[in-house]
Each structure stands twice: as structure tokens, then as C-alpha cells.
Design a binder for these strands. Structure first.
Length: 264
DNA sequence: GCCCAGGGATGCG
DNA sequence: CGCATCCATGGG
């Protein structure tokens, strides 16, 4: 069991802020968190977070436990226009998710709502993911390739069915190559070549699946928050805030997104 | 019954 | 490059 300070770790904020979809809340307030074929149980008391799993190394990395969030929070707090949002969301950690799982999940996320995204992903896991006894693993690309376009549609994917069908095939051998890219703009450009991945989804993948924090996903919520007379397109918003926040852009974006959604 | 969702593809100029 | 239009589905 791992014990972590709660100062920069709020379980619920981290899990529900929209970066991640595979978790379930238990009656006692603890959570199960699923990543690839692994699972952990996580809960908190007044001043600590506790993490129980058979693979501590994997989840220590997954929850980004070796990163010092005080530096991130302190730096972004100096931007007075978002300092209150940083304070509100300072318990969010940017998860280090599996790249393939992130790519598939965020193709599904496009023009969709978080509740339905979670249910859809759960159905896919239950349909073709490896049975781990008490849960199902996230399917591998090989398992995903066994599904037809109609199979995807029957799982409720709508017009995203064709994107997934094709991109699961086009990703053969590509995930490993892309995962080595450290330049966020280059990774973004490479990801946009796949069907179903546009600018916003690519930014989510570089941020959540590659931990390239110089990313700024502009969805409908962020655009409503950041839109001005000058910044009147998602691309302009993205470019402006990437240059403003630099390598902290991804964190800033999460604080803004989380605050906006919790105060709708 | 309506609007919206962590948008993207396509076609047009 | 910018812009318009279309797209399946279900949550609220």
C-alpha cells in the first residue's frame, strides 16, 4: 500500500476532471481505477491518500507521484486571472495514461458527453476486453481489430464507428513510434493524420497519453471561457495560451476546465 | 421535444 | 488558410 500527502492530490478531482474515464466509486467513498489490464483501489482520510494495488510501480507512475506539484501550482498562481481556479483545482494530477488507451478513448470523446463516453468505453471493454475476473481489461489494438464497423455501431459509437475501425488498423506499429516523440507540436501533427483525430483530440492525447504538458486542448468549455473579440477561433485560443503558459499550459487548461464544469 | 456534448471530415473558395 | 455543412447518439 502506498501513502501519499493530500496537499496536491484530490482523488475525486483527479478522476472526474475529464482526463480519464475508467473508474467507479464504491459505497464507502473509495474508488476503483482501471488502466489497461490493471486495477487499483484508492481512498483518502483527513490528510492522506492511500493506494492499494498489485502493481505499485505502474500506478506510482500513472498518478504522476514523482512530480512536484507545488512548483506547478505556485507558478500558475502568479497569473491573477486564473489563480482562484488553480487554488480550486490544485488537487488535480495529470495522469500518465497508456498511449493506445488514450488515443481510442479520446476518439470516442469527440462531440460526446463524459457520461456517455464512460458508458461506451465500459461496453467495449466488456465486449472484447480480457476478462480479469472482477473486471475487464481495456482491449488491445489486436482485440479492437476483431470488431466490424457494425459491431462498433452496436456499441453506441455512432459515426465514430468508421473512424475507430480505420484508425485501429492504421495505428499498427505507429503507437510506439509516436510515443517516442518529445516535441509536442510534432506529436500533435503526427496524431492529426489519423481519422477521427483533429486538433482538440490530438491535444488531449499529447497531454494525457504522452504527458507533453505544452498542450492546450480547446473544447467547447475552454472556448467559452477563453473566447474574446481577438481570440475568436479555437486555434487562436490554443496558440495564445500555449505561448502564455508554455510547459504549464496543460495544467492551466485542466484547472480552467475543471472549475468551469463544476460551476456551470 | 429540444439543446448540447472534452469535434472532426469533407467540400468549397 | 477560413468557412459551412453534415454527422449518430443519448444525457439533462
Amino acid at each position: 500500500m502506498i501513502k501519499i500527502s493530500k496537499r496536491f492530490f484530490d482523488i475525486k478531482a483527479t478522476l472526474t476532471c475529464g482526463q480519464f474515464f475508467r473508474y467507479s466509486e464504491n459505497a464507502d467513498g473509495s474508488f476503483f481505477v482501471y488502466s489497461l489490464d490493471k486495477r487499483c483501489k484508492i481512498w483518502q482520510d483527513t490528510d492522506s491518500v492511500f493506494l492499494l494495488t498489485e502493481d505499485e510501480k505502474y500506478f506510482r507512475n500513472f498518478f504522476d507521484l514523482d512530480t512536484d506539484y507545488s512548483k506547478i501550482v505556485n507558478t500558475l498562481s502568479k497569473f491573477s486571472d486564473i489563480s482562484a481556479k488553480v487554488e480550486y483545482g490544485k488537487g488535480i494530477r495529470i495522469l500518465r495514461q497508456d498511449l493506445t488507451e488514450t488515443i481510442i478513448s479520446f476518439i470516442i470523446s469527440a462531440n460526446n458527453n463524459i457520461t456517455r463516453i464512460r458508458k461506451t468505453i465500459e461496453r467495449i471493454c466488456a465486449r472484447i476486453g480480457t476478462n480479469k475476473g472482477e473486471y475487464y481489461a481495456f482491449p488491445t489494438l489486436e482485440q479492437l481489430r476483431t470488431l466490424s464497423i457494425d459491431d462498433f455501431k452496436s456499441l453506441g459509437l455512432g459515426y465514430r464507428a468508421e473512424y475507430l475501425y480505420k484508425t485501429c488498423r492504421d495505428l499498427e506499429g505507429e503507437v510506439e513510434r509516436i510515443g517516442k516523440i518529445t516535441d509536442s507540436e510534432l506529436a500533435h501533427k503526427e496524431l492529426c493524420k489519423f481519422v477521427g483525430i483533429g486538433p482538440k483530440v490530438a491535444d488531449c492525447i499529447t497531454l494525457f497519453g504522452m504527458h507533453l504538458t505544452r498542450s492546450y486542448p480547446v473544447d467547447t468549455w475552454i472556448f467559452k471561457e477563453n473566447e474574446t473579440e481577438e481570440l475568436n477561433t479555437p486555434k487562436k485560443v490554443r496558440d495564445y495560451y500555449l505561448s502564455l503558459y508554455g510547459d504549464y499550459a496543460g495544467f492551466a487548461q485542466q484547472y480552467i476546465f475543471y472549475y468551469a464544469r463544476e460551476h456551470r
